[in-house]
Computed example of a mutant assay.
Amino acid sequence: MTPAIGIDQKDLTEVAHTLAKVLADEFLLYTKTRNAHWNVEGPDFHTKHLFFESQYEILDETMDNVAERIRALGHYAPATLKQFLQLTHLTESSRELNDSTGFIKELLADHESIIVFLRSNINRFANELHDAGTSDFITGLMETHEKMAWMLRAHLK
């Protein structure tokens, strides 16, 4: 059943399609953060292992929230690795070293890329696609990523 929430179906479809890209980015970043958690090595192993765990836990909740927002708009969330890889604008990593600094730099770049993408859609969702709710929702996501990026950045000082 199509939601009757005061947003044109064409606009809902466009919002859901953009959120599918956000979900794919979140999933890829979650996977890369899990990789860092599992594979980090070095004298700071224990602290970074725990730090990466705290980050992927936030991303796990974030993914669920994005998928549920897509469903609330009457669309299905992508849920296969193939779909995620087709939709994401992030890249998978291939690392030679499993040092914390390398992981942190890579994850930071991905968070910043997501922040830019989210920021570019805040006004678009509200003004062009008439969905103030999703605009507000992605503003919150952006703030979450800004805080996570700050935490990563702080490790590089």
Score class of each variant (00 low, 15 high):
residue 2 T to W: 05
residue 2 T to Q: 15
residue 4 A to R: 14
residue 5 I to N: 11
residue 6 G to A: 08
residue 8 D to W: 01
residue 9 Q to M: 11
residue 9 Q to K: 09
residue 11 D to Q: 15
residue 13 T to D: 14
residue 13 T to L: 14
residue 14 E to H: 11
residue 15 V to T: 08
residue 18 T to N: 09
residue 18 T to S: 10
residue 19 L to H: 04
residue 19 L to I: 14
residue 20 A to L: 07
residue 22 V to S: 09
residue 22 V to W: 00
residue 22 V to L: 04
residue 23 L to N: 02
residue 25 D to Q: 09
residue 27 F to V: 08
residue 29 L to P: 01
residue 29 L to H: 02
residue 31 T to L: 10
residue 31 T to I: 08
residue 32 K to A: 01
residue 32 K to I: 05
residue 33 T to N: 02
residue 34 R to A: 06
residue 35 N to D: 14
residue 35 N to L: 15
residue 38 W to H: 04
residue 40 V to H: 04
residue 41 E to R: 15
residue 42 G to F: 03
residue 43 P to K: 06
residue 46 H to S: 13
residue 46 H to W: 12
residue 46 H to A: 08
residue 46 H to C: 07
residue 48 K to G: 03
residue 49 H to E: 03
residue 50 L to P: 07
residue 50 L to D: 11
residue 52 F to H: 02
residue 53 E to R: 08
residue 54 S to E: 13
residue 54 S to W: 08
residue 56 Y to D: 01
residue 57 E to K: 13
residue 59 L to M: 03
residue 59 L to Q: 05
residue 59 L to F: 04
residue 59 L to S: 00
residue 60 D to A: 15
residue 60 D to P: 04
residue 65 N to G: 12
residue 67 A to W: 06
residue 68 E to C: 01
residue 70 I to H: 05
residue 70 I to N: 08
residue 73 L to W: 09
residue 73 L to N: 12
residue 75 H to M: 12
residue 78 P to L: 06
residue 79 A to P: 01
residue 81 L to F: 12
residue 81 L to I: 14
residue 82 K to M: 13
residue 82 K to S: 15
residue 85 L to M: 15
residue 85 L to D: 07
residue 85 L to K: 09
residue 86 Q to P: 00
residue 86 Q to L: 11
residue 91 T to R: 15
residue 91 T to M: 09
residue 91 T to A: 14
residue 92 E to P: 10
residue 92 E to V: 10
residue 93 S to H: 10
residue 93 S to E: 13
residue 95 R to T: 12
residue 95 R to W: 03
residue 96 E to Y: 08
residue 96 E to R: 12
residue 98 N to S: 12
residue 99 D to G: 04
residue 99 D to P: 01
residue 100 S to L: 02
residue 101 T to Y: 04
residue 105 K to E: 15
residue 106 E to D: 15
residue 107 L to C: 00
residue 107 L to H: 05
residue 109 A to C: 04
residue 109 A to L: 05
residue 111 H to S: 04
residue 111 H to F: 04
residue 113 S to G: 06
residue 113 S to M: 08
residue 114 I to R: 13
residue 115 I to E: 11
residue 117 F to N: 06
residue 117 F to W: 07
residue 117 F to Y: 15
residue 120 S to T: 02
residue 121 N to V: 09
residue 122 I to S: 00
residue 123 N to Y: 12
residue 124 R to I: 13
residue 124 R to M: 09
residue 125 F to K: 03
residue 126 A to W: 05
residue 126 A to M: 05
residue 130 H to S: 10
residue 130 H to G: 01
residue 131 D to K: 06
residue 131 D to W: 05
residue 132 A to E: 15
residue 132 A to L: 11
residue 134 T to C: 08
residue 135 S to W: 04
residue 135 S to P: 02
residue 136 D to E: 11
residue 138 I to K: 02
residue 138 I to M: 03
residue 138 I to F: 05
residue 140 G to W: 00
residue 141 L to I: 13
residue 142 M to Y: 10
residue 142 M to Q: 12
residue 142 M to K: 09
residue 142 M to G: 00
residue 143 E to A: 12
residue 144 T to W: 00
residue 144 T to N: 02
residue 147 K to S: 14
residue 147 K to I: 04
residue 148 M to R: 07
residue 149 A to N: 02
residue 151 M to P: 00
residue 151 M to R: 07
residue 151 M to E: 01
residue 155 H to W: 11
residue 156 L to W: 06
residue 157 K to R: 13
residue 157 K to L: 15
